[in-house]
Structure formats: structure tokens, C-alpha cells
Write a protein that binds this DNA or RNA. Structure first.
Lengths: 344, 344
DNA sequence: CTGATAAATTTACGCGCGTAAAATTTTGAT
DNA sequence: ATCAAAATTTTACGCGCGTAAATTTATCAG
């Protein structure tokens, strides 16, 4: 970019120096493909010589819809969501939209606040991973009625234009099968039921066990926060010191819980794994970014990050560019993949 | 909020229903304290009856500076940054500003892109944790000349209005002292030098060892990415299988590296800790959110998250509300605190 | 009650761009 | 070269609000 002393202050001026009329320039910025190639070339040449960017605020003031996309995750300090958010951001940028990332920090009130502040930004659409059970359903539903909203990770039945997530009824039975096949039938340590995935995974576990003719054994942990490691550690320690788990094989409803439990087992001097001398096996769910660096490395089910984020974005833009009116409400589920490591 | 059929569409209309003139209402929204209490009460009463929010875009168009604050971290999938970002967000909101969170994803080009897009948002200020060594210093410096910018976590000398971070020359000697006092003099496993902290910590280690009359032993790891766990694991495994570390006591330049090394040690069947039967000690730096759930739990130095984020925000707003012109460029360093756990 | 001062109102203009409608030019095929 | 269709230009208006200047009103001490 060649520095030029003449600062361009508005589109009028930029149109002048590029020899194109302002309305056409405006059209270019809203949709570069909508102007003749020769015109586009001239504009882009001028763009290279003078560095001009349209005023974001003036631009969006008279637009019914902006090119902004809201992304909301329940808990950004969880690397799982950080990773998904990154994927989604990239996909939005690739489509010429501006992602705006927000975290609810596990707080339903903040979730609503974010939605309200987002509403006044006139976003083209929103990708929302709801907090879940404690979400203000009415507020979210009201928002989604006005703004095209795709849910991901955690479903709120009937709300939004659709849902993209993992198929817990495929992934959980898969790892239950694996665990049963290779050892004692597992018990299930369940995360606090912050969202529907918690319940679905429990149900999937129970169903899978029954199909195998085994007795399901569910251990429900108290709490309503997102500090799963701590819950897993604290409750794991308590149970281990209190007679132990009903099975030597423990399936945790997510990896963060398993990370906590692994720490508790380690502290108790229990050797975890499927090798010789191991007295306990622990498995998780999600393939958390750190799951391969636990001790021992964590056997788990991977969620298909790429597909989930890609598909959420695709669905949203199909909706947005189709005028915002969806006929059905698709629920798209991706299958998990068994990730066999050392812990089970 | 009582629903009202009459939708308020602009400030004109809202001013009418609240019985206050539009300019005064405008003044209220920009600074509620700047209008008479009785007036404020009437406005807020109307605000409760009719739900109206000023149009963000029209609002910011004619403002030289907005109430937006940019927050940029190098790598959001690192819970350390996610936590700091959360603190900073909260502090901004508490002051009536709108935080806009961005992650460079370890990519210098994206760092610049974010800055450029931020520039057109006319933010009141920016809080930047730079990528570090690979940052485009010129671009960042140019940006910081136009927009009040506070650096945190990682310093770029001379750039921005100031820096807030940890005092590596206090924290590292502190843990070196502890390790020496309680066992063999540690060697130092160094993260890829992605930012100045890497170098400072090495220098601090060397200085501390020399003062204690010990021979410093630095192990530098290759790489320029942010996947520290992987580096720590891969290189740790290599070194352990290749004659081992020069000391049974390994100080890692950050926790994520230590997490990788712990995994490598576990895999190699090496018992880590300061207890009986342990043949190796591993310590980290930062007090990463997961450090207490490693196996064994990680002895480390905590960074003072709260103070760092609070002070960054305070400094930025002192600058912003002081007109944007700073005379000096303070470098504020907070002390670390020794967190003794089981790994060393 | 008076006067000084602070606050609110009235009036008026402009910001930078979206966008509609009509006139004009360019394009690409005949 | 001819002509219809597509793209561009001209012209013109409005969005919702910030903000300045002049005027009016409210406030409070004396």
C-alpha cells in the first residue's frame, strides 16, 4: 500500500479519485461481485493507492441488516468452545462477514444482555451455543424470532432456526460398547445437568447398557456451574475415599470431568489405564484439546469440531441469504469418533 | 418492562414521550450524570415504560471517539488468556464501555488485520496482548500512535502507552530459590521464544542460578507456534529417552510446557514430585487454570490475573479520559506468588 | 423576592452513506 | 453497424444522531 499524503475522508472523495461514481462504489463495497469486472479493477486499483475504508457506522445506519454475525458461547475459558469459536470465526470471515465473539461466562443474565446488545447491532445472524438448562428460554426465543439464529452444541427445543451438534445417542453407545468389550461394564459419572447434552448422554448410556444386558449405574454430581474439573476432582476424591465407584470402569460425561477425576485418582495413588497393574479405567467425551496430555492420556469420543462449526455457519447463511424465513427447523447431528488412548 | 404497542423508533420520538428535549436525552445517553437528577429520573422512567435504545450506528457516526474498547489476545484457546480477557471485559463494562474481544490466533497477519478493522471502529482505546516476537512492530506502533493502546502480558518496547505484566525477574528467581532450597538445582526448559517473556524468564533463571553459585542449564525448544503442550510433550519424550535432563529438577518457562512434559514423564513411567519414590520434579510458571488438575498437581508461580487486568484497564481509561496524551510510558509489573503443589 | 448561575430547550446544521428513480453509457451478440 | 439488456451515472433524499449557539427556564443562596 503506497502511502499518500492526501487522506481520503469519505466515499465521495474516494469515488472521485477512482473515477467511479459514489453509488457504484457503494455497491462495490456491499457486494464486489455486483459491479462490472473492469469497474471493480479500477476501484481496487484506487484502493491500493489510497487507503480508504468506508465508515462502518454510516454504512450500517441505513442498512436493515449488517454484515455482522454474533457468536455466543457459554464459557470461553473452556478450550473446547474457544476452538469451535475460532473455526466459526474463520468461516464467517471467509464469507465476508464480521464475527463478533461473546462469552456468557455461564451466566444466563449475561446471555440475555449479550443478545440485547446484539439486537441493536442489527446482525445478519447469530450463532448461539446456549448456556442450556438455565438459559432464559423466553428471552432467547424472542430474540430468535427477530434475528436468524442457529443453535449449536446445546439444543433448546423449538428455539432458533435449527441446531447443529453431536449425536450423543451414537457417540455414547459407541464408547460404552468399547468399554464393555474390553473390560468391566462402566458406571457413568454425570456432569451437573447444565444443558441438554448432560441428560442425553445419561439416557444414551442407560440405553446402551440395557441393550447389552448390563445394569446401568449413574452417579450424578451436584452443582450448576461450569467448573467441571473441580467438580470431577472434588466428588471423585470423595467417592474414592468413600468405598469407591460401583465399577472399576468410569465413563465421564465430558472430558473436563474426567480430567478432574484423573487428578483425584492420581492423588489417591490409583493407577489408571488398561495396562498391567491398572486398577481403574476412566473415559471421557468430547476430545478436549488437552485430553491427549492428561496422565494417562484420555480415551474419549471426539466431537467433529470442523463439521459442527462449518455446518452451523453454512446453515445460518443459507437462511440469511434466503431472506431469513425458514420453513423447517433442522437438527443436524454429527457422529463422534472413538479416540483410544491410555486411560481406558 | 411494560410492553407498549407504540414502538419507539428514534430519539426524537422517545424524547417526546418522556417529555424531555432530544438534545438533553442525547446528553443523558452519553453521560447520565451530566443531566439534572430530576431530568434523569424522568428519562429513566420513560425508559422503563417504553423500551428504546439509541441506534448504535447513528450514535457513533458523529462521535470522534466511541465507547468501544478493543481487547486483543494472541491465543484465546489458551485458558490463561481467556481468563484475563474475561476480567478485562468485566472491568470495561463496569466503566460503561463496550468491549470487543479478538484473538490473533498466533498469527501476526491476523493481529494486524484486527487492528485495522478496529481502527475503523474508532475505539476509545485498545488493550493488546501482542503475539510478541513475530508481531509486525511497525504496524502495531503505527496503530498505537493513533489509538490509545495499553499493552499487557507481553511487552513491545516503546510501543503503546504503557505495559502491564508480571515481573519475571521477581517470579522466576523466587521459584528457582525454592527449588534449590528443597532439592537439586533445576535446569530450565524454555518455550519457543514467541515473545519477550520467554527471553526474560531465561535471563531471570540464569541470573538467579548464578547468584546462588550454581551452573545454569538451559534447554531451548524449537518451534514458533503456540502449541506449547505438544512441544513440551514431544521434546520431553525425546530428551527423556535420550539420556534425560541434566537435572532431576526441571523448571519450565510456562505451565503449558510443563503440562506436556508431565505427560511425557508419565508415559515414560517416571514418578514426578517431591515425595518418596519420586525421581523427578517439574515446575511451571503462570498458574494456568488447569495446573491444579495435572498429575501430579503442578507447582508453579501464579500471575496476578486480577491486578494485571484491573491495572491495564485503569491505565487505559486514565489515558483515554485524560485526552489520550500520555507523557511517560509506564511499565507496571506485578509480583508472582509461589504456588506449591505436588510436582516439585 | 432578587439575581446569578446552572441546566434545559430551541433551532439548525452536518456527518457518511444507503438507496430509489430516471437518464445515460457500455456491453455483447446479431 | 445495430440494438436490447445490463451496468453505470446523476440527482436527490433521508437515516438517526451529535453538537454548537442562542434562548429560556429552573435552582438556590441571600
Amino acid at each position: 500500500m503506497i502511502a499518500v499524503s492526501n487522506k481520503i475522508k469519505n466515499m465521495e472523495e474516494f469515488a472521485r479519485v477512482s473515477g467511479i461514481s459514489r453509488p457504484t462504489v457503494s455497491k462495490y463495497f456491499n457486494e464486489p461481485e455486483s459491479v462490472r469486472p473492469s469497474t471493480r479493477a479500477r476501484i481496487e486499483e484506487a484502493l491500493a493507492r489510497y487507503d480508504y475504508r468506508p465508515n462502518v457506522y454510516a454504512m450500517n445506519q441505513n442498512r436493515r441488516l449488517t454484515k455482522n454475525v454474533g457468536i455466543i458461547v457459554p464459557y470461553l475459558a473452556d478450550p473446547f468452545f474457544a476452538e469451535i469459536a475460532r473455526n466459526i470465526e474463520d468461516a464467517c470471515i471467509a464469507r465476508g462477514y464480521t464475527p463478533m465473539l461473546h462469552s456468557s461466562h455461564g451466566d444466563p443474565a449475561m446471555e440475555v444482555e449479550i443478545l440485547e446488545s446484539l439486537r441493536s447491532l442489527k446482525p445478519a445472524g447469530v450463532l448461539l451455543a446456549p448456556i442450556g438448562r438455565r438459559s432464559d428460554r423466553k428471552a432467547v426465543a424472542a430474540f430468535a424470532k427477530h434475528v436468524p439464529t442457529m443453535l449449536f452444541d446445546s439444543n433448546l427445543e423449538g428455539i432458533g432456526a435449527g441446531f447443529v451438534g453431536s449425536d450423543n445417542f451414537q457417540s455414547v453407545p459407541m464408547i460404552v460398547d468399547y468399554l464393555c468389550r474390553t473390560g468391566e461394564a462402566p458406571c457413568f459419572m454425570e456432569m451437573p445437568p447444565v444443558n441438554p447434552n448432560a441428560n442425553k448422554r445419561r439416557m444414551a448410556y442407560v440405553g446402551a447398557m440395557e441393550r447389552l444386558g448390563k445394569e446401568p449405574q449413574v452417579i450424578s454430581l451436584p452443582g450448576d456451574g461450569w467448573n467441571f474439573e473441580e467438580v470431577g476432582f472434588r466428588e471423585g476424591r470423595r467417592i474414592l475415599g468413600d468405598g469407591g465407584f460401583p465399577s472399576s470402569n468410569v465413563l465421564c460425561s465430558n472430558d473436563r470431568l474426567a480430567i478432574g477425576l484423573l487428578a483425584a485418582a492420581y492423588e489417591a495413588g490409583i493407577k489408571v489405564g488398561h495396562g498391567a497393574g491398572c486398577s481403574m479405567r476412566i473415559a471421557g467425551h468430547d476430545d478436549h484439546p488437552f485430553a491427549r496430555y492428561t496422565c494417562p492420556s484420555l480415551t474419549t469420543v471426539s466431537q467433529d469440531y470442523d463439521s459442527i462449526s462449518q455446518r452451523s455457519v453454512d446453515s445460518l447463511f443459507a437462511l440469511v441469504e434466503g431472506g431469513g424465513k425458514a420453513t423447517s427447523r433442522p437438527e443436524i447431528l454429527f457422529e463422534g469418533r472413538l479416540v483410544m488412548r491410555d486411560s481406558a
